[in-house]
């Protein structure tokens, strides 16, 4: 009987010990259980809301302003006399504002044709992960350009509306992996007035843009628009730009070579008069600096 009791006590002590051991070993965090992965929007598909020339699927964060300075130089094949095109520069200044996660707008001015432009960009659907995820971002852009040059022929009756052109774009993009983002953007450019009867008022184009990250702070980018109508052989061409995005703390530099000189949708889609096949490419850069206008107030609460 005594033996039995001793055994019993030993067994019980062992049980207690084992229980204690067990508690030591468990990963406490597992006791709480993982939450279902919540819906999370995919961010940072591009370093900037522009691929190079065209809009990207990326939006500015709410409360931020992007000040952009764009330069397009002369043709590289002009040689050393013109410092490979750097003697000539065409530029555009712009301010873009992030309003919501999926809403932004911007205004800019190019010195070519003294043209003002503005747009609004909205994404009804955004790429996300977790519960209720969606595979792509679908963004809609509506923009307008205003040519402010003096009238070409002041002797005839001119209409203000003749200065205007519009563009409408749908961007469907996906950050396929951390390193690769691709997007396709069907676009319509409408001119109220075209210089020649042979030129269409409505030009349809499809943009193909992408980014491949080289490192955390550097990426290769490309931006091509296939122009479906209004291309006249030997006069205008499909714009193709290839570049690198370099991020240096507060700035993003988008350095590239392109056959396009225009810096708004109307200009680079319908007025690209140089050809890669003839070696007519130019160097250009976009400099982007993002400022926080409205700070995230949730933090201080």
């Amino acid at each position: 009987m005594k033996k039995m009791i001793t055994r019993m006590v030993v067994f019980c002590l062992f049980c207690l010990y084992a229980q204690g051991m067990n508690a030591q070993e468990t990963v406490l965090l597992k006791l709480v259980g993982e939450d279902k992965p919540r819906k999370e929007y995919v961010k940072y598909a591009f370093k900037s809301p522009r691929v190079i020339n065209g809009h990207s699927m990326e939006f500015l964060a709410p409360g931020t302003m992007d000040f952009r300075i764009l330069h397009r130089f002369g043709l590289l094949n002009q040689g050393a006399d013109n410092f490979f095109g750097l003697d000539q520069a065409s530029m555009r200044l712009s301010f873009d504002f992030g309003l919501r996660r999926n809403l932004m707008f911007g205004v800019g001015r190019s010195n070519f044709k003294k043209e003002l432009d503005g747009y609004i960009k909205f994404a009804p659907l955004m790429q996300s992960t977790g519960e209720g995820s969606f595979p792509v971002t679908v963004a809609l852009v509506a923009g307008m350009t205003l040519n402010t040059l003096p009238w070409a022929d002041p002797t005839i009756k001119n209409y203000f509306s003749s200065r205007l052109a519009y563009y409408f774009q749908t961007i469907i993009g996906r950050k396929i992996s951390e390193g690769l983002t691709l997007q396709i953007s069907p676009t319509l450019v409408h001119h109220n007035l075209v210089p020649l009867q042979t030129q269409p008022n409505d030009v349809y184009a499809v943009g193909f843009g992408g980014r491949a990250k080289v490192s955390n702070r550097m990426a290769l980018t490309w931006d091509y628009f296939y122009v479906a109508n209004g291309i006249e052989t030997g006069v205008n061409y499909h714009p193709l730009s290839v570049g690198v995005d370099i991020e240096t703390g507060g700035h993003v530099f988008q350095l590239h070579v392109s056959n396009a000189a225009g810096m708004n949708e109307r200009a680079f889609i319908t007025e690209t008069t140089n050809s890669w096949s003839k070696g007519e490419v130019r160097f250009g850069f976009n400099l982007s600096r993002v400022f926080q206008i409205r700070k995230n107030k949730k933090l201080t609460q």
């Binding site: 508690a23 406490l28 964060a61 709410p62 995230n296």
Partner: peptide, 20 residues
């Protein structure tokens, strides 16, 4: 009972005053 303390932190959930 054991004094064990464990924490898990999702890095994406860190918030900043500035989006950049």
């Amino acid at each position: 009972k054991t004094g064990n303390l464990q924490m898990a932190v999702l890095m994406k959930a860190f918030e900043f005053e500035r989006a950049l």
